[in-house]
């Protein structure tokens, strides 16, 4: 190390000490009544007391809703929260706005957009989460177990729509989505399938066809690796079933 590098290294250390010394004791927005960080842990939020919920709703500085939004980074808010927000009923809207607008979460923006359209249209929705499925574990990848092929299935709350997301075998190795509509009337219907990722959105409008098993449709989203590379690590599949008009 040259003298100059050594001197700069020393100066860097001094600068670091200065930056550390300049650290405030708490977040700039945090007030004495605000919830402590462990209260924003996964699982703890659902157990907030009424007093805690009320504080977060009305937190004068906005700190608590900011922390709620920060807790979603890399995790995403649950679908029930997005759904409430899309209906205008979410009690912590500033947190959601921070996630959607400031953090610009592409995946949640698409989900909210799809859910908002459902406010005016009678439809059935099923959502499949692809979060973290392809994320490498913390251990060195070389020692990790081979990943199981993706196979996810979800039924809508009313049972009228079943969505299955499949990573097919080689050599095709595609990302395919199958939909079944057990509740579909004789008129058939259409299902819009949206794959919303952090970096891209892929959509298909599917016409249900009657088979010996009922009303079904399927769509390929191309080669699995390519589709997932476009979507990013976290993605979600939203399927919306609409009966034909009239």
């Amino acid at each position: 190390m040259s003298n100059e590098e050594f001197t700069l290294a020393q100066a860097m250390k001094l600068l670091y000490e200065q930056e550390v010394a300049s650290a405030p004791e708490r977040h700039a927005l945090e007030g004495p009544e605000c919830l402590r960080l462990p209260r924003f842990a996964r699982g703890a939020i659902e157990q907030w007391t009424e007093a805690e919920r009320e504080h977060v709703r009305t937190c004068p500085t906005g700190y608590c809703q900011r922390m709620l939004a920060l807790s979603w980074r890399g995790e995403h808010p649950p679908l029930a929260h997005l759904s409430q927000y899309a209906r205008g009923e979410y009690p912590y809207p500033k947190a959601m706005q921070f996630h959607l607008e400031h953090d610009r979460c592409g995946r949640c923006r698409v989900v909210v957009r799809v859910l908002e359209t459902l406010r005016t249209v009678a439809a059935t929705v099923a959502v499949v989460y692809g979060e973290g499925l392809l994320r490498q574990p913390e251990e060195a990848a070389a020692f990790a177990e081979p990943r199981a092929p993706v196979y996810l299935c979800q039924t809508s709350a009313d049972g009228k729509l079943i969505v299955t997301v499949v990573e097919t075998d080689p050599p095709e190795h595609e990302l395919k989505v199958y939909v079944e509509a057990p509740g579909c009337g004789e008129g058939g219907g259409r299902v819009r399938v949206t794959l919303a990722g952090e970096s891209a959105t892929l959509e298909r409008e599917l016409e249900l066809e009657k088979t010996e098993f009922g009303w079904e449709a399927e769509a390929s989203f191309g080669k699995f690796e390519e589709a997932v590379a476009r979507l990013g690590e976290d993605w979600v599949v939203v399927a919306v079933f609409r009966e034909p008009e009239g």
Binding site: L15, Y16, V20, E25
Partner: peptide
């Protein structure tokens, strides 16, 4: 640790 974290992020 918050001082060290803050200092690092500020840097």
């Amino acid at each position: 640790y918050r001082g060290q974290l803050y200092g690092s992020f500020l840097g």
